[in-house]
Nucleic acid binder design. Structure first.
Lengths: 256, 256
DNA sequence: ACACTTAGTGTCAATTACACACTTCAAAAC
DNA sequence: GTTTTGAAGTGTGTAATTGACACTAAGTGT
């Protein structure tokens, strides 16, 4: 039945790493530098962090390794969302130049499995060296042209995030341990790209049981200090809470 | 940065093909026969249809090819849902025997991208020869031990289907062109594994606008004949309808 | 003490969800 | 041709949820 292809593809993982700071969603991107054959100056461009999957590791492990090498963090939210395997996804000149630079066959096909990661960006210290001289948090509205098909992958991740956030309480992964109700609302508004009513938001969040109020309040702010909350990680992860459903405008629900 | 693994993995696609008949959800599985070194009789076992991805095709094309070779059908609902890449996913003796039979290195790693397909099983005529001497529709409750990690993949597909059905009107893909309201309700009840109220179901389905009543009714049934309906494929695919949201027991909705 | 800024609070009307039982229609049985 | 059988089809009242909406509270800075 199956005829073996002439050359096996390479398989990589790429991580779309989301962070949230200064009221914007951001992606953690790495900078790559490649020689430009014409100008003889170096070109640089951004790409998603990723790597080939190694012999002895599974896909989740590979993605976790990439994330750890770049950020030093482990145990963070990381979820596979789509594989990308267009035979022509490596065709830009600079991508080929980069592959040559890392001594890989630039004609080899690479199939990649994309993951999305949600991290509290304040907690990250970029690890020197491993992937790139430089890594930056770029607002999603300002993402330039990336290497390979990484723009497509990033857009896919954003759509996946928007869907997931409507079904599971995962947005908390983007906030620090303690956060205010306004922080949380701003985050949701940013991800969903629409305004939410303050009072209704509070009511539903509190009724849902996914967060707990702390006795502690803000200090040193020049206005009424906000109360801090924490995410009920244990309760949610142990199935104490079901499906979270963020109803979309124009939607309708089926069945009792 | 990245060290090339000693041997590139193979990449395949596997299709979890759902059908619905006699009030049960079924999977289309193929039978594989391999020599048993000890008994010298042939062993056989079931597996998901799949194949290696070819050089010139993308992942969706590979999955569509597998589906077409097996069923002769094109243009049917087919959606990627997860990649599986455990290094030990090929370890059972019969899987290795089968790989040897098709002249592939039984030690090579295979990473697979899994798709789920929804088809009207009445419409399928299994194509002879291509994949297997035999293909069968087995009720999901009666799936035996499959090759590779195909039990895991099937379970993943079922969970994905259950989630998708709550968000998008795709269950129709499992029914014939014309169907009765009871057919539809039974299908939903089967997928969701819970009973639904007849009157509430009808009301919401009709209000949702995803189906249209035909003037035609059943003939020759020994009870009150049911009306036929069709799925509004065009309306739904052109974005005329939004998010479909099937609220789960114990769920809660967030935000206005 | 006053200005400034963000936090925090309650109600009402409209919509949606859910529970629930009888009548209608056609064929088959007698 | 009357009766039996079995699934189709229909409506209402109650409870819960949604969504719109504006003022007071609590700090800091001047």
């Amino acid at each position: 039945m199956s005829v073996s292809p002439s050359l096996n593809p390479h398989v990589s993982v790429d991580c779309v790493i989301f962070g949230f700071s200064k009221e914007t969603l951001r992606l953690l991107l790495i900078k790559r530098t490649v020689p430009n054959a014409i100008t003889e100056l170096d070109d640089s461009y951004y790409a998603l962090p990723g790597d080939l999957v190694r012999d002895n590791e599974n896909l989740d492990e590979a993605a976790a390794r990439v994330l750890k090498e770049l950020t030093g963090l482990t145990g963070i939210f990381l979820q596979q969302f789509q594989a990308f395997g267009d035979p022509l996804r490596i065709s830009k000149a600079k991508d080929r130049a980069w592959l040559q630079g890392v001594r890989q066959d630039p004609d080899a096909r690479v199939i990649t499995v994309a993951y999305m990661a949600l991290i509290d960006s304040n907690q990250v210290q970029i690890q020197p060296g491993s992937f790139s001289k430089e890594a930056v948090w770029l607002p999603i509205a300002e993402i330039p042209e990336l290497g390979f098909d990484h723009n497509d992958i990033s857009e896919g991740a954003l759509l996946a995030l928007r869907e997931k956030v409507q079904i599971q309480p995962i947005a908390f992964e983007l906030l620090p341990e303690k956060f205010t109700m306004s922080d949380l609302q701003t985050l949701y508004e940013t991800i969903l790209e629409r305004d939410l009513d303050k009072r209704n938001f509070r009511r539903k969040m509190l009724n849902s049981g996914v967060i707990t109020a702390l006795p502690e309040k803000q200090h040193g702010v020049s206005n009424k200090p906000a109360r801090y909350y924490v995410f009920n990680r244990n309760l949610v992860e142990n199935g104490g809470l079901g499906f979270v459903n963020l109803k979309m405008e124009g939607s309708f629900t089926l069945f009792s």
